[in-house]
Nucleic acid binder design. Sequence first.
DNA 1: ATAAAAAAATACTGATTAGTAGGTTACAAA
DNA 2: TTTGTAACCTACTAATCAGTATTTTTTTAT
Lengths: 195, 195
Amino acid sequence: MKKAAATRLTILQKAFELIYAQGYQATSIDEIIATTQVTKGAFFYHFKNKDEMGLAIIEEILKPTLTGSFIQPLTSNENPLKAIYDLMYYLLIKDKFLKPEYGCPAANFTHEMTSWNTHFSKALNELTGQWMQVMTQALERGKKQGWVGKEVNPRQATLFIMSGYWGIRNLGKLGNKTYYTAYLKELKRYLDQLR
Amino acid sequence: MKKAAATRLTILQKAFELIYAQGYQATSIDEIIATTQVTKGAFFYHFKNKDEMGLAIIEEILKPTLTGSFIQPLTSNENPLKAIYDLMYYLLIKDKFLKPEYGCPAANFTHEMTSWNTHFSKALNELTGQWMQVMTQALERGKKQGWVGKEVNPRQATLFIMSGYWGIRNLGKLGNKTYYTAYLKELKRYLDQLR
DNA sequence: ATAAAAAAATACTGATTAGTAGGTTACAAA
DNA sequence: TTTGTAACCTACTAATCAGTATTTTTTTAT
């Protein structure tokens, strides 16, 4: 029971890395099993097809990561505007797993899968929805505590901030890493204007 | 000489539509020639391989469109903040060619190709660079004319705005079209704060 | 220890992929 | 009208793809 769970996890992790760097469709099962040293029989024992593996990656790799790195920092009781900026700074500059040239895993998935696979859309919608909800709540809390201006619409602002993050992650692929720092400066400006 | 140019253009246009809806890798040459009624021999007479066709789409379809719809509206001498908002409103709401569920063609290409094909990166970088340059210039002009605050950094603001646009185009794929209107409202707020 | 079931290995299939080889038609200039 | 070439067509290939059938090994329960 333990060894099996380990190989399953190995497949998911290695596959995730490959997909993050190359895209879902460009990553073949043959390539996954070659880099994991797992045979095809073992692969299809754990996943009945490629898409089921893709969904498992979202559920078992992406979602826990999101909860840890993207959501928890927004649940504190400090100034949400500061928390949001710090989070973005961390994600764009500090985090050594997310690479500019590969963009954002969730955004990549969304881009690639949404138009043809509704299961993926649903799973990804939950993913982003969760993040947006937490950020919205943080801004609402900030309003009550006086950190955030009364005229601010939390849901609207959240959407705006998230759009910016998704966009800069994609734009950042086009080479210039200075994009990130310039983006962050303007993000700070924008956040300051929310009071 | 004329018939040939016509078939070439047909291929590019139909292929663009398919790729816009499905992605580059998911669109096979066989599918392209099936929908265009062009034979494989004709296809490979006009393009020496699939990637060359992809680059031709960027150069001959995407770039001219960009110039017409994305750039020209920013070259007027009116308030650039209004011009930017109107442009975004047009692109997100009015334009009937760009569909929410398919996102932005240029962003899609970037997402899918950048990490593994440097030729595409270069072409796409030119594309976005051109748009950013024009928007930056519009904001600089606006500063001189008093439309835009003196403390505003045009390049920085442009990057921020473009990030938002690319991001909302991608987020918009996840179903809810109300994302667009909420985004536009907050964009207005942001633009107003640039004076 | 042994039977049963779980996990993994091997070797394959049929479909699809990008691309090619070689021939045919259409059209221009001479 | 002939001839050369641009444009196009048909039929194929080799590689790769996701997925399967069958067998073997490993683990677990008794």
